[in-house]
């Protein structure tokens, strides 16, 4: 098997340079590539375009990169919960492209499936449709949306093997598998890196062909954004 293992986050992101377009997996703070984000903050690359459903919170996730003004443009579906983001957006320092969540996911999927574009009804008749081609199929209008073109996709998985095969856990799967398929170079950080042969081929969510670099992550904080519980009666 081809060995995709690198020593850690710093090595994995070493050729990400200023102006790169990155996809970052996760939904809210769930399933985000914490190690790579911290390494990108340390490396202090700037002028980044980040494709990610959300933009983290002020002191965690992509919020850490925003604080250091490393992000030129965010492409997201929902960006609440982040005061620094709001400040940069209102002052014009940060460019933001808000797109429907399903469109975001499916533009990743299209890239990973080798399709240049998709048609979706999301946004027809709204400002999202401005300037976009509309096609009518069977009496209903659809927008033409292009596949993403990202230099790097950075994802987080639960388990992975040295061949780059990935398994995700629970709803931390979210955007990770579709982004993993969509990057020109895909970097995966995992909670548990195992030798080839230990993962059941039937249980793989992302085949290693999509993954170029993989490493054993460390010190996961896995912060919870909205801790909601019920009381035992």
């Amino acid at each position: 098997m081809i060995n995709k293992v690198v020593s850690g986050a710093e090595e994995a992101i070493k050729d990400i340079s200023d102006g790169a377009t990155l996809m970052l997996g996760g939904f809210g703070l769930c399933g985000i590539p914490e190690n790579c984000i911290n390494a990108l903050v340390k490396k202090a690359v700037t002028n980044l375009t980040c494709i990610s459903n959300n933009a983290g919170v002020d002191d965690f996730g992509i919020g850490l990169m925003l604080k250091q003004r490393q992000v030129k443009k965010m492409i997201s579906s929902y960006v609440g919960e982040n005061a620094e983001f709001e400040r940069q957006l209102l002052s014009g320092e940060l460019e933001v492209d808000l797109i429907p969540q399903g469109t975001l996911a499916t533009r990743c999927l299209a890239a990973g499936y080798g399709m240049p574009a998709i048609f979706t009804p999301a946004g027809v008749g709204t400002e999202v449709a401005e300037g976009k081609e509309i096609r009518n199929f069977d009496g209903k209008d659809y927008l033409l949306e292009y596949a993403f073109d990202a230099d790097f996709a950075i994802v987080k998985a639960w388990k992975g093997d040295s061949a780059g095969n990935l398994i995700f856990r629970s709803t931390s799967r979210n955007f990770n598998p579709v982004m993993a398929m969509a990057g020109k170079v895909t970097i995966a950080e995992v909670e548990e890196l195992v030798p080839v042969g230990e993962l059941d081929p039937d249980h793989i969510h992302t085949p290693g062909i999509y993954v170029h670099r993989i490493f054993q992550g460390k010190d996961y904080e896995k912060r919870i954004e909205q801790r909601t519980v019920r009381v035992k009666s």
């Binding site: 960006v79 957006l89 429907p100 399903g102 009804p121 999301a122």
Partner: peptide, 13 residues
Amino acid sequence: MVKGMGGAMDLVA
């Protein structure tokens, strides 16, 4: 401040 549409546009469409 606009936070985004999340999945709302996909759902209603």
